[in-house]
Design a protein around this nucleic acid. Structure first.
Lengths: 247, 247
DNA sequence: TAGCATTAGACCGACCGTCGGTCTATAATT
DNA sequence: AATTATAGACCGACGGTCGGTCTAATGCTA
């Protein structure tokens, strides 16, 4: 899909790019694909526009035909990532049989399942994205995710309030605060990944697992639920993520 | 303090910078001063090293004699800001007469007082630092502040636990989570400032004030305190900040 | 309807300006 | 003499621009 180079008519190696015309949707999707791979591998600042177009097999001009700037590409990528992860969880949001607590738990469970399935890739990505020098990348994706998730969480909290399960004075404000809260895991996650990579997997698993449980308790408390109601941790999850083979 | 230009020995105007030698402490402090002003005015990415040395009145070579990179300068600046704001609150931390709840409230009150005193400047700075394109600046300062504040908050929580006022399973983890929590105010703050600048001061004040109260409640709940125990909001504070004359 | 002209816009890549960072020379200090 | 602090010319990388090319679809003519 990436990196096409064409030999010229005379059969000798030709360094020039062939002019290949594709539909704009395909092209921009390909650019996003390449950008995603590279950004998640080396970070935003460490990926040049030239890297991207080399991988995608098209020219500078073409790139700037599709995106007004490198920044804009990042923005578009963040939006796509946010949209896709939302779609991943769609079934849970549409399930009419769940009450607010069950729905929150199902959302956490869903994103755990997703992470387990793609454990090696996720771990590598986290390892890059949570690095301090990659804040820009991290922050843009976070903003995009928050944007799509906030209304959804707000609605769940409002529903929980109506059912008398939650006691959240202001669903929207609480949704925003809870979403902010999840970022406290980024640092912990990054530390754990580093530690695991350094060889101390057991300790890393222990710490991460504990923090996931504490995070769940904090969420419980903010919503006035009994400690342990919201389940963020899960036996074996931390280990599955941290011990994933990323070679 | 910034921008000195010197006429040469022959009395004629000399465009070259004179070689002025100062003690390293002074020099690096001056560089940090200039950097702080510029970063807080235009952001990190929008301030070039040349801008800084022009303002500070010294050469490229001298700059790189003191700091190995622009990044390192930012790091040092963040550390200084964190250290200074900590010193500002030192009296409260040293006050042996306060219990844990009182100490937390005193810390919030102290940082409110600080912000009120410097309202115009603080508001302008927030307006810049909370902008999405300035995440790097924001994040570095946040990290530095978190680093110095975490042990302090951990100790307060532990003390509150011992006194039976808090119920926080893991003081350190809870300290880190609570510190993370404060970032939820950044977005709100930024929105409010924008709104105030757009003219709708009353609405901005109302929103910010409400969010400060809700933030306090969230903190209460995480620590298992009755709603309203921790006072983050204060009558007139939001207005003092948002209506400050920044012209 | 075959053949030609026109046009939109996808695409190319040389080039440019900016900016972080380096290097050599030199002035002051010890 | 050696070391430290400075100056500022210079470098290379990188994001972004610009003039122009190529192609496929559309319109027009005979």
């Amino acid at each position: 899909m990436c990196l096409q180079r064409v030999s010229s008519a005379n059969g000798s190696e030709d360094q020039r790019l062939a002019r290949v015309i594709k539909s704009p949707e395909i092209r921009s999707a390909e650019l996003l694909d390449c950008a995603q791979r590279l950004f998640f591998e080396r970070g935003y600042n460490n990926t040049t526009v030239n890297d991207i177009i080399r991988e995608a097999g098209l020219s500078k001009g073409a790139f700037y035909h599709y995106f007004p700037s490198k920044e804009a590409l990042l923005e578009a990528l963040a939006a796509r990532v946010a949209r896709e992860s939302m779609e991943e969880l769609r079934p849970i949001l549409d399930d009419r049989s769940l009450d607010a607590v069950e729905r929150l738990n199902a959302l956490f469970a869903g994103s755990r399942r997703f992470k387990r399935e793609l454990a090696p890739q996720i771990r590598r990505t986290f390892d890059v994205v949570f690095r301090p020098e990659n804040v820009v990348l991290f922050h843009r994706i976070d903003r995009a995710v928050t944007e799509v998730a906030a209304p959804v969480i707000t609605e769940i909290i409002a529903e929980g309030n109506r059912a008398g399960r939650f006691d959240a004075p202001d669903p929207q404000a609480f949704a925003e605060m809870l979403l902010q809260f999840r970022l406290s895991l980024a640092t912990v996650m990054h530390r754990a990944i580093q530690q695991a990579e350094a060889g101390d997997i057991d300790e890393a698993v222990r710490v991460l697992d504990k923090r996931l449980r504490l995070y769940g308790i904090a969420v419980d408390r903010v919503l006035k639920l009994p400690d342990g109601t919201i389940k963020v941790a899960e036996p074996g999850f931390a280990r599955a993520l941290l011990a994933a083979d990323t070679s």
